[in-house]
Design a protein around this nucleic acid. Structure first.
Lengths: 361, 361
DNA sequence: ATTAGCACTCAGAGGCAGTGAGTGCCAGCA
DNA sequence: TGCTGGCACTCACTGCCTCTGAGTGCTAAT
């Protein structure tokens, strides 16, 4: 059945109102607020039809209407007017991003925190999951039983480790290890670091003290870390502010779910049409998310790979505003990470703040 | 007024029971469980006195007794039998520590997570706040417009940053910068990095591209970071499991408070008698913590400075068990960070797992 | 097609009695 | 003198009832 223009306006009004108040919406209110000059009785008829079409539902007979998942879906796809970020909003975002995105390693958690702060919902950040390799290895000799390992990964993240040894090594040995590791451990993935490779490296360096094994262990660790645990969530406590999570059991279940980065990681690898994806309540695969919605935006992480940022909230979420903000943050992030060199670390200090400003006046 | 031996046993029984059930405790139950062979009427008399002495209170006339803060204080100071960790418990802790404490930078958050997991309460970790200095600087030349800065701090943390430049530099220049920075930026604190120092460094390197400023900016950043934001909290969601935080308003207020690391940092700098400190409900300075308790254990972070780990929970907390676990974790942490070289990163790979085992069979 | 009017529904609030866990106190007993 | 059994009392909690009011669906009139 086709949905009339008037029905659309009414549905949109119901959703808007419900988003704002979290209370079932009655016909009288709609009659006032929708801008349609018809009586509440007319609205009632329309509401009844929208209900039978599955866009709305009633908590009980004598209550107002509440949007169903299908109703939200329609709203998101067709009805909502896209929120235009105000200058203040963009500036606020720019300011936080400027400050925060300096260090590639911490980027994830910072971006998460920014998104949470900007949207006032818990926010997540997922890094593009990819099999990283080590681009180059450096060992820095500190003193006779200390050196630092520095590894530059293919993802451009830099990892380090201070190694304190129970015995002495000389600078020569460190130098030698560095050369050998650069030759044999660069460009390979985690699972290519085999015991065979390690023992052959031990032989070629003449190491009998387990140094090679320790460094290889570090390599394995950073590579697997890069591949997996790249999901963070920030601002979980913000859920408790919302009426839909006043039930501690519900809140706990969702928070628990969100606390586990393995769960979050599953959001990666969704198929993605345009830049922002909205997953409404029951559309979620995970049981725990069934009465919450997720809004995701993808960002370009360079090398053609992409990551995600997103927020989690009640199905009654201000989709329009959240989507706009996320998409803006994602855009800024993409720019920072790819195209526009200089890299953020440098750019933030060198270049005033035009990295992202031009996208919106 | 002196408190009799029997009163002590009764008080201890009340606290134990209340810790376990979160329900007001009645005289009958105590008569059964305390092991004293007296009737409930006798217990009632004793309870009445304990109440008038301020150790217990009644939520209402016809309810059982609940310990007051003073009651808990007495319990913690004198009555509770110190929990002895079982072999399984120590082993579980050892195992997680072994796995996690490898990288000094991430140590804080890992330790927090371990403590939260082990105690089942939200846990915090505070680093010893100290003015760090840079021990040594290394610039690693990657390609003509990329290099990595590596700084080893006085705290033994290693920080890095990938610098991507909008222009070319040659390896020689990088080398030169490295030398100059090592000479003039090592051993100084954040506030000693002045514009004057920067411009004089610029002159001595002949840098006109802002490279020196960028590197100095990195130095300032890591030093201030090391000094300040060294507080993490993990497992906040665990609060929601507890009956005392079923009220979403209360839970939200506490979680919010805990989310701000500035608040947590205030716990640092408490005076500390023995190794574990218990702060019960109203003894807390912060309003938000007034009906929660905090258990803190200090660890030795080397250089004579010390950090804290702790958990936050309801006043009805299993102090004994929590204290025992925290203290064990703190002890292991101290060992890992100081005395017993090798450092964890290496030790974890080289030395089976005797770093901490001997403290308890 | 729209609307005014009306009967109907039902969650939620407020009031009220019954229940039971727990208390305080007293009188009797060791 | 201290302990105990007994008893009256208190009061949160529960279930039950009624009342209220927001909101509905339907119908007849416009």
């Amino acid at each position: 059945m086709e949905i009339s223009e008037r029905k659309k306006r009414i549905l949109a009004a119901v959703v808007d109102e419900y988003i704002a108040t979290a209370e079932p919406v009655g016909s009288k209110l709609i009659a006032q607020k929708s801008g349609l000059s018809v009586s509440s009785a007319t609205i009632r008829n329309e509401l009844a039809e929208l209900t039978s079409m599955g866009y709305l539902e009633q908590p009980h007979t004598s209550a107002g209407r509440v949007p169903t998942a299908q109703g939200y879906r329609m709203y998101v796809n067709e009805l909502m007017d896209r929120h235009r970020l105000s200058i203040e909003e963009t500036e606020e975002i720019n300011r936080s991003m400027q400050l925060k995105i300096q260090q590639l390693d911490k980027m994830m958690s910072d971006v998460g925190r920014i998104a949470a702060e900007m949207t006032d919902y818990p926010a997540l950040a997922l890094a593009a999951r990819q099999s990283a390799t080590i681009k180059r290895f450096d060992l820095i000799y500190v003193d006779s039983n200390t050196f630092i390992i520095v590894a530059l990964l293919s993802t451009n993240a830099v990892k380090n480790r201070l190694m304190h040894l129970p015995f002495s090594v000389d600078a020569m040995m460190v130098q030698k290890l560095s050369t050998v590791f650069n030759a044999s451990f660069c460009g390979i993935t985690e699972d290519q670091i085999t015991p065979i490779l390690i023992s052959s490296t031990e032989r070629s360096t003449g190491d009998t003290m387990g140094l090679v094994a320790a460094i290889a262990g570090f390599a394995i660790e950073v590579l697997s870390e890069e591949k997996s645990s790249q999901a963070v969530i920030a601002g979980k406590a913000k859920l408790l502010r919302l009426p839909e999570y006043q039930d501690p059991v519900k809140a706990h279940s969702l928070m628990n779910y969100l606390s586990d980065s393995e769960h979050l990681a599953k959001l990666q690898g969704m198929d993605f049409g345009n830049d922002v994806k909205v997953i409404i309540g029951p559309e979620n695969v995970a049981e725990e998310l069934r009465d919450s919605s997720v809004v995701l935006a993808k960002y370009d992480a360079g090398d053609g790979t992409q990551g995600l940022i997103g927020v989690v909230g009640p199905t009654r979420m201000d989709y329009s505003k959240v989507a706009a903000k996320l998409s803006y943050i994602a855009e800024g992030l993409s720019k920072a990470l790819t195209g526009s060199k200089p890299m953020p670390g440098f750019g933030a200090l060198m270049i005033p703040d035009n990295t992202m400003d031009k996208s919106k006046g």
